[in-house]
Write a protein that binds this DNA or RNA. Sequence first.
DNA 1: ATCGCTGCAAAAATTTTGCAGGTAA
DNA 2: TTACCTGCAAAATTTTTGCAGCGAT
Lengths: 139, 139
Amino acid sequence: MSRLRGRSRKVTGPRQAILDLLRRHPHPLSNKEIFAALPPGECDLATVYRSMHLLRAMGLVKRFDFGDGVARFELLADGDDGHHHHLICTQCAIILEVDECFPRELEEKLAAKNGFQTVTHKLEFFGVCRQCQPTANKK
Amino acid sequence: MSRLRGRSRKVTGPRQAILDLLRRHPHPLSNKEIFAALPPGECDLATVYRSMHLLRAMGLVKRFDFGDGVARFELLADGDDGHHHHLICTQCAIILEVDECFPRELEEKLAAKNGFQTVTHKLEFFGVCRQCQPTANKK
DNA sequence: ATCGCTGCAAAAATTTTGCAGGTAA
DNA sequence: TTACCTGCAAAATTTTTGCAGCGAT
């Protein structure tokens, strides 16, 4: 909230509702999911799109892509750069946050080898979760 | 070609044109880029979409997502599972293929820890290439 | 002769934009 | 007050689909 106010941005009903939702829901959410989860009439879909643009530009939110062409957003803690990865079940789509990260020194080696600077990465894991394993094996 | 024929799939003009293009262009291409690169009238946009669906389902082509919401496709060699990653310049969008991969044993540890099976990953690197570094620093 | 494939056009789905009225600061 | 925001509706994009005719096998 204060992070909005600090930059001549207004704290409005729709924005509070969206931020509240993201706070309660610690996993990446798509625009449509956000819209659907909000009480009807609380916020227009167009406003969701506009808000996510804004929040992302302000660094309050981070965008993730799981390879299905749908953008998903996650709230960032103040000062957090949000660099972490997910483990996603390809059957039921449950999303776990993971600590593992691509080794720093390997990344630096790669950057040097190719003459690149300020290299980062996007990394997501996919598999079959415990609950879905019986189902997956059956087929 | 023979990989198509083998499964009662027809080798048609548009499909040859698309496969030719992918063969000549070793980097991931989006549907629109494919359509634009094809000689006018050679293939309808809808056919590009349909072809990429088919080729992907048949495993001739692999889909990559660089986080901008655009699907890109790359031709796979026969028998290749296409598992590799890219280093993309955030300024000029040039794409390099890289050998580095997420360490197998770390991935297995992660899978075990979370009770997941058959875990894989998507990994892409982003940075500023040598040519773009003067430009990037200027701003 | 089949059955699959294609172009064209329409439909569906997704995202962006214009505008006039409302509201936080 | 004065920007900034919002809902609504329209527009712009992107992707999918229906259909009749064509073409590879």
